[in-house]
Design a protein around this nucleic acid. Sequence first.
DNA 1: ATGGTAGACGATCTA
Length: 267
Amino acid sequence: MNLSITTWNINSVRLRLPIVEDVLKTVAPDILCLQEIKCQNDEFPADALKALGYGNIIIHGQKGYHGVAIASRLPLTEDHRQDYCGVGDARHISAIFEWGGRRIRIHNFYVPAGGDEPDRTVNPKFGHKLDFIREMRELKAGAEPGVSAILVGDLNIAPLENDVWSHKQMLKIVSHTPVETEGLLDIMREGAWVDLMREHVPADQKLYTWWSYRAKDWAAADRGRRLDHIWSSEDLKANLRGIEILKEARGWEKPSDHVPVTARFSL
DNA sequence: ATGGTAGACGATCTA
């Protein structure tokens, strides 16, 4: 009995619906978690996804910015949207599904990018990001008795040295500053979350999920960052069979700057 | 050291 989950910052689901459909047909995950859908709930292309077998869709949309959604072949129950930092942004949605006799809550996050200046006294967006990840520390993998947990999304932080192309050159760049990387590792440690991508790819190997739109030649420069993540509660670690990062998606026509990341599990 | 691209929206804002 297999289970696969894909996370993808799509940077406008309406503009990129054709490549979403391609991924659903080829990667064919059981559950797709999207971030930056950039539309309101009633604008989400639910019918197109339902036509491909993803009949269970929950959305936390917002006009113009942010927004997250989960499209699933498996029924989703007990869905919840948390307003982190109480600012009304659509950056989180979660629900419970059943697999192999387990109940599993899946969380889909879009953490604030944080602006350019890594100093909250001059850049409120950075302060918002730090407040957001501080609030995420309350979220424990074992929060609900008898319920396993998976946390995915664009966390906008590359926590390890080999999650960026140059650790030294990135230390003062938002997404890899110590206050962010340590903050993310604190969430993992205190919440007993397992970094499934690093279970599968050792920490001494470079691993990226995002390449900037601003590079002249993203593939030649290969200055990527691992901003997208898949975590789980400890009990699911033994069921992990593989991680796939669809790097080729960055080279498609009109790509997102993030690529789909898929975790495959089996019993 | 700097500036570079992308999307939604329609004023720039967010990334």
